[in-house]
């Protein structure tokens, strides 16, 4: 097992290099100069622009620029400065990532809490009304644009009946007690969380259902029934545990999907996370910040997949590592 983990870790190295090269390549191919805003400034002399170019290393060959960028990340954990916010990219990411993680992590938990029970019941009562209802619910969840769903919820719950706040993570300009502050954040969380969990639950539900259907047709389930075990024990102890094994893989694959969904939802709900920051960066062509966030998300996804891979070995002892 230890050997397997080390080998898998080593395998990630060329992929990380590939990711960074691909990203760097896209950004160097981009038209326009990142310093373009300075060129139009009448107070800038040619010397000053040249000085800035040297400062940002823009006068060097592209390959050298790439090596410098990677060196800085490895040696100093430095991804450069945001052009627009004039702050280190790493600082900006570390400030914003927690509100994204909070939303993403909570939505993952709720996704599983909704999807697994519905998937299991749908499978055990195949072709029942519940099963059809669940299937239609899942199809709708996959098909509805998340931002449209979000707008519908805002219209209903924030504008019409004013139950939840429209946007943000905290109510600005209000002093709360510690308890009140948490409650305030919770209130802001409800709507974005609902959108992310329900749309996410749809694909998980379909997956759990089909995985469960496959398992309950296996011989060992028939054996468990033949032994006279209660149906509850057969389903939840023998079948469910095996059915959830492939779902672990799906969890790993879900990480990029989660960040994609979070980006749109953060923008609609003006949630102060990485997605919102990236959108602002994109609109301002803040290349270092865009590059930093993309690199961060990609590496995060890579390690998410790796953890899912390793977890797969723990939950399924039949897997042999050579």
């Amino acid at each position: 097992m230890g050997k397997f983990i080390i080998r898998r870790l080593l395998q990630q190295i060329p992929i990380i290099i590939g990711i960074s090269m691909l990203l760097f390549g896209i950004f160097t191919l981009a038209p326009g100069n990142p310093l373009a805003s300075f060129f139009t400034d009448p107070n800038m002399t040619a010397d000053q622009i040249k000085h800035l170019e040297e400062l940002y290393g823009l006068n060097k060959p592209k390959v050298e620029q790439y090596v410098d960028y990677v060196k800085e990340i490895i040696l100093h954990q430095n991804m450069g400065n945001s052009m627009q916010l004039r702050q280190p990219v790493t600082k900006l990411i570390s400030e914003r990532m927690w509100s994204t993680f909070y939303l993403a992590f909570l939505s993952l938990i709720f996704t599983l809490l909704i999807a697994i029970p519905i998937g299991v019941i749908s499978a055990t009562k195949q072709y029942s009304i519940f099963d059809y209802g669940g299937t239609i619910f899942a199809l709708m969840g996959i098909s509805i644009p998340s931002f449209f769903f979000a707008l519908l919820l805002i219209k209903k719950f924030s504008i019409d009946i004013r139950l939840f706040p429209i946007s943000g993570m905290v109510t600005p300009g209000v002093q709360f007690t510690t308890m009140g502050k948490y409650l305030d954040i919770l209130k802001h969380t409800v709507l974005p969380l609902t959108v992310l969990s329900l749309t996410g639950a749809a694909s998980f539900m379909r997956y759990t259902r089909s995985s469960m259907l496959e398992v309950i047709r296996q011989d060992y389930i028939r054996t468990a029934r033949a032994k006279g075990l209660k149906e509850r024990v057969v389903i939840y102890k023998h079948a469910l545990r095996n059915a959830l094994i492939p779902v672990v893989t799906l969890l790993g694959m879900q990480i990029p999907v989660l960040f994609s969904g979070a980006l749109i939802i953060e923008i609609v709900f003006v949630w102060p996370g990485m997605g919102k920051m990236q959108h602002t960066a994109v609109l301002n062509r803040d290349y270092p910040l865009m590059m930093g966030i993309n690199l961060f998300l990609a590496v995060l996804t890579l390690f998410g997949n790796l953890i899912a891979d390793i977890a797969y070995g723990f939950v399924d002892p039949r897997i042999k590592y050579d």
Binding site: I26, P256, S260, V282, M290, N294
Partner: peptide, 15 residues
Amino acid sequence: SCFPFIPIAITFVAI
């Protein structure tokens, strides 16, 4: 497939 789709897509489109 390591890149979350929407973030990388908006990066490409922005460029």
